[in-house]
């Protein structure tokens, strides 16, 4: 079997892009101290909204814009629950995923069986959105580590009591982070429907949102780590598809498990490293997953 390394790399870039967007968004959310398990729900919302808009207008880029807005909008449900109503973040994230999957399935009926408009290729015949994803990696890194807003966001995620005591607005910071996470997940979802599958089908994100959550852990909460994780995942996916195409004597159903098993293995490996290596430690933000309520 001949595998041209360049074409494999291009496939890998495509396969990793949805996860890259979603995981970069979730990275910012978690650095602000919020655990949003609703990534899958926001991705599927973006996948449908983006596809719908792209199909209706014939403009795929408008589709991605709408997907970002839709992802951000639905993330506000989670934001309201956790930041205003102080509900448990794990349960609220799950609720967002279940709701998003249902809502997209319900509203998506009219779009079943139609094709997405063609996308003009970007530089080097690589999709513009893939480029955007690659640009977002240094951009997110720069924001988190080099800007004052990024510093405040990290401070809020690290220790919300202290950030509050210094006068920073915990709720506003977190709302903004959650909205950004929603928008990024929306774009990631839309990439699947508009640029990869070119169709809308129910449940088409197939766990990509959960894999994105695992990749944030894998990255040890850094932007370059997210890129590495997304590429690793993309590599496994491409390899698996290649093996399927080559007709390897392993049932298709078992081959298609590879991304999920790889995610578990990677998660275990990285958790073990954080657990056992004294020097590595964990980069998890100190206030991750806890709510904040100040009595004034």
């Amino acid at each position: 079997m001949m595998i041209d390394p360049l074409s494999v790399f291009l496939l890998l870039l495509g396969a990793s892009t949805p996860i890259l967007f979603a995981a970069l968004g979730e990275l910012v959310v978690e650095r602000a101290g919020v655990l949003n398990l609703g990534v899958e729900g926001m991705m599927i919302t973006g996948a449908l909204a983006g596809f719908g808009a792209a199909y209706s207008t014939g403009n795929p880029f408008l589709g991605f814009l709408v997907a970002a807005c839709a992802g951000a909008a639905i993330s506000m449900l989670f934001a309201a629950l956790t930041q205003v109503f102080l509900a448990n973040q794990v349960a609220s994230g799950l609720a967002l995923t279940l709701f998003g999957l249902g809502l997209a399935a319900m509203l998506g009926k009219p779009f079943e069986g139609v094709r997405a408009p063609a996308m003009p290729a970007g530089p080097l015949r690589i999709n513009w959105i893939v480029w955007l994803g690659l640009v977002m990696v240094p951009l997110v890194w720069w924001f988190l580590n080099r800007t004052r807003s990024g510093l405040i966001l990290r401070a809020v995620g690290e220790n919300h009591e202290a950030a509050h005591a210094l006068g920073y607005n915990i709720r506003l910071t977190r709302l903004a982070a959650i909205a950004f996470g929603g928008a990024m997940a929306g774009v990631g979802g839309a990439f699947i429907s508009i640029a990869t599958v070119l169709q809308w089908t129910e449940g088409m994100t197939a766990g990509a949102g959960w894999i994105a959550l695992a990749i944030v852990v894998f990255s040890n909460w850094t932007a370059p780590g997210v890129l590495a994780g997304a590429w690793l995942f993309g590599g496994v996916t491409v390899l698996q598809l290649r093996l399927q195409a080559a007709g390897v004597a392993v049932p298709v159903q078992l081959l298609s498990m590879a991304p999920y098993l790889a995610t578990i293995i990677v998660l275990v490996a990285i958790s073990a490293r954080q657990k056992f290596s004294r020097r590595a430690g964990t980069g998890a933000p100190g206030s991750l997953g806890t709510n904040f309520h100040a009595l004034r």
């Binding site: 220790n159 005591a165 210094l166």
Partner: peptide, 20 residues
Amino acid sequence: VFQHFSLFDALTVAENIALG
């Protein structure tokens, strides 16, 4: 100067001071 919770463990000295 607070008795409790006013520093960010994972951040550097400079970052902590900038935040204040």
